[in-house]
């Protein structure tokens, strides 16, 4: 059979045209993938993360990783986002192996960036957070938290690690643990009086005193905790009323310091007129007045 030459040429041309069209489309797609504003893309990926759209978040972080230079700061940011998403996408465990790999890549590639500090903390958090009903390996976790603090003593992540570490000691309820925590907190407060976690540190100090039955010291620490407390003015549920109530009740029933108790009950009444516990605060003031009156009469 004689080959049909024009037909063969037509087929070849057709194939060439198809390949050319595919190449053009591929180029267009490639161009589309190039990230013009990586920071906006990272913000958008985090938004997807917060909305619970983890696959979308991974896709966008990956897009930034593919579209920015190897050693750019945006790459580290995207890596951090990607690592967090892999870790937290499916609870309770997520893809810890991939997350750990990515966190370690950040620490290796950019050891001085703040993302290295957050990544180091995240690696410990992954060990601390265990499935409900099981107990974390506290000795190991404490050691690792201490290492994060030692490595980043002036970074928020380091301070956060310290706070988490102390929390594990105070949750143990032994006298030795409480004493150890109190001692460590003493040092931390002296070394970092302006730490962003200073109020939490005083709160934990109060808790250590409670475990050790040091009543006056507990009250003093609670007052310090309040003094250093940060309030987010945009959060209507975040106010000082609970702190006032807690201080007043400890002053009244643990320390017997009625003046301090009265002061904080009154502050609650004045600053939070809609507070549900105001009836109790009024009654407490009446109760203390009556008690003192009775004792005076007895004397």
């Amino acid at each position: 059979m004689k080959p049909n030459r024009p037909f063969q040429i037509f087929i070849v041309i057709l194939i060439l045209i198809t390949v050319a069209i595919a190449a053009v489309f591929l180029l267009i797609e490639k161009k589309k993938e190039k990230v013009d504003k990586p920071l906006d893309e990272i913000s958008s990926a985090w938004l997807q993360f917060r909305m619970g759209e983890y696959n979308q978040a991974i896709k966008r972080f990956q897009m930034v990783l593919d579209g920015v230079p190897e050693n750019s700061p945006e790459r580290i940011q995207a890596l951090y986002g990607l690592a967090c998403t892999h870790w937290l996408k499916q609870l309770p465990y997520g893809d810890k192996a991939t997350a750990a790999e990515l966190f370690n890549e950040i620490i290796t590639k950019s050891p001085d960036s703040e993302y290295a500090a957050w990544s180091t903390l995240a690696l410990v958090r992954m060990q601390h957070i265990v499935i409900s009903g099981t107990t974390p390996d506290y000795p190991v976790v404490r050691k690792l938290y201490q290492q994060v603090y030692d490595k980043y003593p002036k970074h928020t992540a380091g301070h956060e690690a310290f706070i988490y570490m102390i929390g594990t000691y105070l949750a143990a309820f032994t006298k030795e643990d409480a004493e150890y925590a109190k001692g460590k907190l003493d040092e931390f407060i002296k070394d970092n009086p302006n730490s962003p976690f200073i109020s939490s540190a005083w709160g934990l100090y109060a808790r250590a005193c409670q475990n050790l039955n040091l009543k006056q010291e507990r009250l003093d620490a609670m007052l310090k905790e309040l003094e250093k407390r940060e309030i987010d003015p945009r959060n209507p549920f975040m106010d000082n009323s609970s702190a006032y109530w807690a201080i007043a009740s400890v002053a009244e029933f643990e320390v017997g310091d009625f003046d301090t108790a009265r002061k904080y009950y009154r502050m609650m009444l004045k600053e939070y007129p809609r507070e549900r516990r105001n009836f109790g605060a009024n009654k407490a003031i009446e109760r203390m007045d009556a008690m003192e009156e009775k004792l005076r009469e007895e004397n």
Partner: peptide, 22 residues
């Protein structure tokens, strides 16, 4: 504002939560 929110929630939802649970 976000850092305050972050630190407060870290304290209340995680650190003190674990202590109160124990």
């Amino acid at each position: 504002s976000f850092w305050i929110k972050y630190r407060t929630q870290t304290r209340d939802r995680q650190v003190f939560h674990e202590i109160w649970f124990s």
